[in-house]
C-alpha cells in the first residue's frame, strides 16, 4: 500500500519558520522559505526544475525528474500523485491538485514540466 503523506500538508497545520514565526501551511510564501534558509546554518535553498513527469510503479504514484541547482544535477523522486511541492512564486503544486485538495484541503496548482520548485541541500561543511 502507498506510503501515507506526512500530516503537515493538511490545511491548518502550524509551521514554524527559522525565525520562530508560526504560519499555517496554506499561508506560506516563497519568501518564507528563502528567509528561513538564509538564517539556517545547515540548509541552503536550491531551485529544482521539473524536467519530466512519468507514471510510477503503482497507479497512484508518479516519478518526477528534477534538474537541481546550478550544476543541474539530475534527480528522480517517486511520490504519490497528491504530494505537494512548493513552486517559486506560485505556491503548492501537485500532479493531481484535485486529489491534494480532497485529501488535505490544501489548494494546489497543477505541477508541470518547467516549474521551479523549492528544494533544500545541506550547506557544505568546512
Amino acid at each position: 500500500s502507498p506510503v501515507a503523506l506526512p500530516p503537515f500538508f493538511m490545511r491548518g497545520s502550524i509551521i514554524q519558520l527559522a525565525d520562530g514565526e508560526l504560519k499555517r501551511v496554506e499561508d506560506l510564501k516563497t519568501e518564507d522559505f528563502i528567509q528561513s534558509a538564509e538564517i539556517s546554518s545547515e540548509l541552503k535553498i536550491d531551485s529544482s526544475t521539473v524536467e519530466r513527469i512519468d507514471s510510477g510503479q503503482s497507479p497512484n504514484a508518479v516519478v518526477i525528474q528534477f534538474s537541481v541547482g546550478e550544476l543541474k544535477a539530475q534527480v528522480c523522486v517517486e511520490v504519490l500523485l497528491e504530494y505537494p511541492f512548493f513552486v517559486f512564486g506560485q505556491g503548492w503544486s501537485s500532479c493531481c491538485p484535485d486529489r491534494t485538495t480532497q485529501l488535505f484541503e490544501l489548494s494546489c496548482a497543477k505541477l508541470c514540466v518547467g516549474d521551479v520548485c523549492v528544494s533544500l541541500t545541506l550547506r557544505s561543511l568546512r
Binding site: 506526512p6 500530516p7 503537515f8 500538508f9 497545520s13 502550524i14 509551521i15 514554524q16 519558520l17 527559522a18 508560526l22 501551511v25 506560506l28 518564507d32 522559505f33 528561513s36 539556517s40 540548509l43 536550491d46 529544482s48 528534477f66 537541481v68 544535477a73 534527480v75 528522480c76 523522486v77 511520490v79 511541492f85 512548493f86 523549492v118 528544494s119 533544500l120 541541500t121
Partner: peptide, 19 residues
C-alpha cells in the same frame, strides 16, 4: 497542537539509487 519545522515541508533531493 503540533508544530512542524519549515524544512520538513521541502523534500531533500538526493540522487536516486538504481534498483
Amino acid at each position: 497542537v503540533p508544530v512542524f519545522p519549515w524544512h520538513s515541508l521541502v523534500p531533500f533531493l538526493a540522487p536516486t539509487q538504481s534498483d
